[in-house]
Design a protein around this nucleic acid. Structure first.
Lengths: 342, 342
DNA sequence: GGCTACTATAGAAACGAATCAAGCACCTTC
DNA sequence: GAAGGTGCTTGATTCGTTTCTATAGTAGCC
C-alpha cells in the first residue's frame, strides 16, 4: 500500500530503449516515429501504467487546460443546467472545469483574478448572479479571457452568450395583458444586472403596446432570490386593496415562487385572485400548483456555447458572438383573466 | 493589448536585488529573511503584480491543490447543496474543486482514474448517483484518496460521510403507519446503492414494528430520478383497485414528485386518495402542493465534512470517519389517514 | 584572537515534459 | 563517388518553483 512514485517519461524511455524525446513524440503525436519503435513505446506505457504529469505539461505549455466557472448559486437549477452544458463542452476537449461559488468562497473578489494570474486556469466563464460586481469582472478580464453568460456589460464589450430576454419578457407580459389585466406590478431583478434591465424593458414595451403607460406600473426591485419575491409581494399587498394589481410579473421563477408563497400565506389564491408569471422556466416550475407560466431559456445550450467561445478565444480564434438564443414563453396555469370586480 | 509575459520569481528577485531563493522564502514564509529585505521583496511583488505560477509549484511540490468532485446530477438540489459544502471547505484552504459530471462526460469511467494518475487532482469526492459503478470506484481508489458521500461499499472500507438513512427511513415509515395506513408500497432506489439498501431496511424495520410482514409490502425499484417515480406509480395504479396501497413510501423526493405527478394525472389527489413521503428534503419539496413530508439530510454539512476528511487524508492524517450525521423527518402535508373504505 | 554556533543569503540541482538544433543513417541523382 | 536530400533519433535546454547545500558574515565565549 506504499504510494509508489508514478512512472515518468524517463522510465518509459528506458523500458522501451528509446530517448525521452521519442516518448514525448509518441504521446503527443508531435514528431515522426518509426512504427516499430512507436509500438515499443506504447507497450511500455501500458505496462507501466504511465500517464503524463499534467503539472509539468502545463508548465511547459503555459496553459493549464482548465477553466473556471463562476456560479452564484448552485441550487438555482438554471445555473446548474448552464453548468452541465459547460461541463459537457469541456469534457469533450479534455478541459477541466473548476467550480467557483462566490458565496461559499473567502475573499472571492481578489481570488478570481489571482486564479488567472497564477495560471491555474486559462479562462473564466462568468454567470452573473444575485448581486453585481462589475469591478471584479473588469479585473478578471484584464488577466485573461472571460466569457459572460446571460449578462452584458455596456461599456466594455466582453464576449457573452445571451438570450433574447427582452423579447421573451415582452411576450410573457403580452400574454398577461391579453388575458385582460390592466392593473399590474413588476418584481424586477437587481437593477445593475443586464438581464434585469432587458426584462424590464421588454415588459415596458408590452405595456406600451397595450396602451398602458409603462411609468404607471410599479416596479419592485428584488435580487432574483425567492425571499425577495416574498418581500416584494408583502409590500404589494400592504397597499390599499382597491389599487392592488391583478397580475404580478416576476423577473425570475424563484421570485415568482416567493411571491406565490406570500399570496398563499395571505389567503389569496393564484391565479384566481392574482395571476403570476416568472422567467427562466426552472424544471420545478412546472411542478408547482398552479404550474407557473414562465419564459424558457436554453440553459444547457447557453453553457455549452459559452464554453465553446471561451475555447476558441484560448486558441486565438477571436470567437465573436453575434447571435442571441431565443427565449420561449411557456404558458401554463398561473395566469387567468382578472375577476370582474377588480 | 499584447499578452505580456507574466513576471516570474526571477523578475521579482532582480527588482528587489536579492536571489531567487530569497523571494521564494518570502512568498512561502519557508525560510529566514531579514525584515528589510523582506519588505523590498514584498514591494517588488506588488509593483510587478506577481503571483506564483501554480503549475511550477505543483510540479515541484507533487500536489495540485485541486480535488475532483464527481456529481451525478447537478440539477438535483441535494447534490448541489453537497457541492456548495465541498466548495466552502475547499476555498478555505485554497484548494480548487473541479467538477465532474459523468453524464456530461465522454468515457467517464476511464477518465476519473486518469485524472488522479496524471496528478491533475490530488483526490476525489464521490457522490454516488443514479446508477452504480462500483468498479470505477475501485479503480479510482487505487490511484489516490477517495471520499464517498452518502454511500458505502461493503467489502472495501473507503472513507465515507453518511447519514443515518436507516433511522430516518424507519421514522418516516413509522409516521405513515401511525396515521393508520396498512396497505403500503415502496418505491426504492437502485438496489446496488447503499442508500437504497439502508432506506429499504429502515422501512422494513418500521413495518415489522407495526406488525406488518415486510415481505408483504411490494417494492418497486427506481433510479432516484423523477421519471422512475412516475413509472413505478403507473405500475402501482395498474393493479386491481381494491389491492391498491393507501400510502407510497419513496426513497427520494424526486421519485415522490414523479409519483405525485402520476397520481394527479390519473385523477387521484394527494394525500386524500394516497399519502406520499419522500427522502432528501430538497428545498423545492416544501413548495409543492401538498407540501411533501420527507427526511432531511444535512447536505451542506455532508459536503463540508467530506472535503475536510479528504484534506486530512491528503496530509497523511489518516482521518477516520466514525460518526453518521442525523437524518431528520420533516412532517408536512402529504400524509393523512387513509379513507375509511380502503 | 581563535574557536564554535549561528544566521542570512546565494547557488545549483531537481521536478517532468516539450522542443529546437543537430546528428546519423540511408537513398537519390548526376 | 561525391553532393544533397529525406526521415528518424537524440541530447540539451527550457518552463518557474522549491529546497538542499555551501558560504559569508556576525556574535558569543573562554
Amino acid at each position: 500500500m506504499v504510494a509508489r512514485r508514478r512512472p515518468t517519461m524517463k522510465d518509459v524511455a528506458e523500458h522501451a530503449n528509446v530517448s525521452i524525446s521519442t516518448v514525448s513524440y509518441v504521446v503527443n503525436g508531435s514528431g515522426p516515429v518509426a512504427p516499430e519503435r512507436r509500438n515499443r513505446v506504447l507497450d511500455a506505457i501500458r505496462l507501466l501504467d504511465y500517464s503524463p504529469n499534467e503539472s509539468a505539461r502545463s508548465l511547459k505549455r503555459r496553459s493549464a487546460s482548465t477553466v473556471a466557472m463562476v456560479i452564484p448559486d448552485l441550487t438555482n437549477q438554471f445555473f446548474a443546467m448552464v453548468a452541465e452544458g459547460v461541463q459537457r463542452a469541456a469534457s469533450a476537449v479534455d478541459v477541466l472545469v473548476v467550480l467557483v461559488v462566490p458565496d461559499a468562497t473567502e475573499v472571492p473578489e481578489e481570488n478570481y483574478a489571482k486564479l488567472l494570474r497564477s495560471q491555474r486556469v486559462d479562462g473564466v466563464i462568468y454567470l452573473s448572479g444575485t448581486g453585481s460586481m462589475p469591478a471584479a469582472i473588469y479585473d478578471l478580464a484584464r488577466s485573461g479571457p472571460v466569457v459572460l453568460v446571460d449578462e452584458q456589460i455596456p461599456g466594455r464589450d466582453l464576449p457573452a452568450i445571451v438570450c433574447d430576454s427582452r423579447r421573451g419578457a415582452r411576450e410573457v407580459a403580452a400574454h398577461v395583458l391579453a388575458q385582460g389585466h390592466r392593473k399590474l406590478a413588476v418584481i424586477g431583478g437587481p437593477p445593475a444586472l443586464w438581464t434585469a434591465q432587458q426584462r424590464l424593458a421588454g415588459y415596458r414595451e408590452a405595456f406600451a403596446g397595450a396602451g398602458i403607460d409603462p411609468d404607471e406600473v410599479p416596479v419592485y426591485a428584488g435580487d432574483y432570490r425567492q425571499e425577495s419575491g416574498f418581500t416584494a409581494a408583502t409590500r404589494i399587498l400592504s397597499g390599499p386593496a382597491d389599487k392592488r394589481p391583478t397580475a404580478l410579473i416576476c423577473a425570475n421563477d424563484l421570485m415568482a415562487i416567493g411571491a406565490t408563497e406570500c399570496l398563499k400565506a395571505n389567503g389569496l389564491s393564484v391565479p384566481e385572485d392574482m395571476s403570476i408569471v416568472g422567467f427562466d422556466d426552472q424544471p420545478i416550475s412546472s411542478l408547482l400548483t398552479p404550474r407557473l407560466t414562465s419564459v424558457r431559456q436554453p440553459a444547457h445550450d447557453m453553457g455549452f456555447r459559452a464554453a465553446k467561445v471561451l475555447f476558441d478565444l484560448l486558441e486565438g480564434k477571436d470567437g465573436h458572438v453575434a447571435d442571441q438564443l431565443p427565449a420561449i414563453v411557456q404558458i401554463r396555469d398561473s395566469v387567468c383573466p382578472p375577476r370582474e370586480d377588480s
